[in-house]
């Protein structure tokens, strides 16, 4: 696979949200607005790239039977580093995303990439894979966030362009499922043509 396609595959062919359907919890919970979706995507990408790099480095020496616990410890470490950094430098963002920052540990995308890619590829490729999948995740979350924000509060990235309240349900829980469902339909229509 060429270096370029490693990065772009996350957007369409192996899109973590619409094709692989991984990491649904943060996808649904944090996309109440475009900005929140973007921030959550970037936070996940940070952990994904670092864990991919480290795991590709240590994979050859980790005994087979304990590889899952080792990977989880590595991932949890990076998540905690991210938590501390966010608390220190972007406390507002940390407050908005709340519980879903520590929950990056159990985001199946990260352990999934470690298992499926990082433990049998080189450092460089694994880093690119992290960037690619992370990018795909970020873009998907931002798109869902934009749709929900427009329908729910008539705004995008906080800029209000439709006056009034919008359809509240789209900011609340049911809207998350509906928007993701319909976007998936759209994605299937376009991608499978």
């Amino acid at each position: 696979m060429s270096k370029f396609s490693l990065i772009t595959k996350g957007l369409l062919k192996e899109n973590p949200t619409f094709v692989l359907v991984l990491g649904m919890c943060p996808t649904l919970a944090t996309t109440t607005s475009a900005m929140n979706g973007l921030e959550m995507g970037l936070a996940t990408m940070f952990v994904l790239i670092l864990s991919n790099i480290v795991i590709s480095l240590i994979a050859p020496v980790v005994p087979d039977k304990v590889h899952i616990p080792v990977y989880i410890v590595v991932i949890a470490t990076f998540v905690t580093v991210l938590q501390l950094l966010m608390q220190a430098f972007t406390p507002d963002v940390y407050k908005t995303l709340g519980l879903f920052i520590p929950l990056i540990v159990v985001n199946c995308i990260i352990l999934g990439r470690a298992e499926a890619f990082a433990n049998k590829n080189g450092v460089w490729d694994s880093a690119l894979d992290g960037i690619g999948i992370g990018l795909g995740f970020t873009v998907s979350l931002t798109v869902i966030g934009i749709v929900r924000e427009i329908l729910g509060s008539g705004a995008a990235f906080g800029f209000k362009f439709i006056s009034g309240d919008g359809i509240l349900a789209f900011v609340m829980a049911p809207g998350a499922f509906l928007v993701l469902g319909y976007l998936m339909v759209l994605f299937n229509k376009i991608a499978k043509k």
């Binding site: 020496v61 039977k65 304990v66 080792v70």
Partner: peptide, 28 residues
């Protein structure tokens, strides 16, 4: 690919990883 598992290298590996991670976290 992954190394063969024996009790010794499993224990060593887990200890080493935990130590390094603890150190990283402590510093951060």
């Amino acid at each position: 690919m992954a190394a063969k598992s024996s009790l010794l290298n499993m224990a060593l590996c887990l200890t080493a990883v935990c130590l390094v991670c603890a150190a990283v976290l402590g510093i951060t």
